[in-house]
């Protein structure tokens, strides 16, 4: 039986991380659908989801064949690489060193790139919109799959973590269906900051477990690592913050 205290961090991490990825995929699908017609965009999205399902079905059973310590080490290192990259970028964005990600700007860029090509076929099937939606769903979806595996596999929490990711998809789709425009008011850098902190904390913990390090306090050390990464990240952002808000593009 999985307890709430064991599952909550994995579900929460999968939910928040997936929220960021799904919002990005949604922006591109929305641009493709609005400009090139919805048949292609929906077909591309469905094909992307099918490709993701195939990858999960094909690779999922292999996880059971890998010894637990090796699995924890590999996933821990990948989590560290992924999480530190996110946290570094979030710190630099919070400090004003690099520009914040703006879904309205991303939507405008995708729309412009689609407008530059051939005339959209609004009533027929548009391959360009379909391919664009397919790539967005597959690429952002792969990140979601990795995060779900990373936060869930080491403790047998794949199902709860998947539910967290699924909840994020439902939330974004429900809000997106109502507002029908890019979800620009999602505090994306704050979420990325939080996810970076969580992934780094899980990464250190599982890399250590994989290397045979007996963490004092067991799973509670994840909270300590998370607090430490949060403190260091916020401190670093405050120290290097640009005074005039000059941002490099």
């Amino acid at each position: 039986m999985i307890s709430l205290t064991t599952a909550a961090p994995a579900v929460g991490a999968a939910f928040v991380a997936s929220l960021v990825e799904v919002v990005e995929a949604f922006t591109i699908v929305l641009a493709a659908g609005t400009l090139r017609g919805w048949r292609g965009a929906v077909a591309g999205t469905a094909a992307g989801l099918a490709a993701l399902a195939l990858i999960v079905v094909a690779l999922g059973p292999l996880l059971d064949q890998v010894p637990l310590h090796l699995l924890q080490l590999v996933i821990g290192v990948l989590l560290l690489l992924f999480g530190m990259g996110w946290l570094r970028k979030a710190v630099l964005r919070a400090a004003g060193i690099i520009a914040l990600h703006d879904e309205n700007v991303a939507f405008a860029a995708e729309t412009a790139s689609l407008s530059d090509t051939t005339t959209p076929r609004r009533n027929g099937f548009d391959w360009l919109g379909g391919v664009m939606a397919f790539k967005a769903v597959l690429l952002e979806g792969l990140e979601v799959v990795f995060i779900v595996i990373a936060v869930g596999a080491g403790r047998g929490l794949l199902v709860p973590a998947s539910l967290g990711a699924l909840a994020a998809c439902i939330v974004v789709l429900a809000i997106g269906a109502v507002v029908h425009r890019p979800l620009a008011r999602v505090p994306e850098n704050t979420l990325k900051f939080a996810v970076g902190v969580i992934l780094c904390a899980f990464g250190v913990f599982w890399t250590g477990e994989g290397l045979g390090i007996p963490w004092p306090g067991g799973d509670l050390m994840i909270l300590f690592f998370g607090a430490a990464f949060l403190f260091v990240g916020l401190g670093a952002a405050a120290v290097i913050r640009t005074p005039s808000g000059v941002i490099a593009q």
């Binding site: 530190m84 690099i98 780094c200 390090i213 007996p214 990464f229």
Partner: peptide, 25 residues
Amino acid sequence: RPLLGGAILFFGCIAVLLASVAFHG
């Protein structure tokens, strides 16, 4: 000792993060 190894891992990661942020800053 394994626990000291854990400290090296944790503080090493913090140091790498700070160095990367400072470099870009």
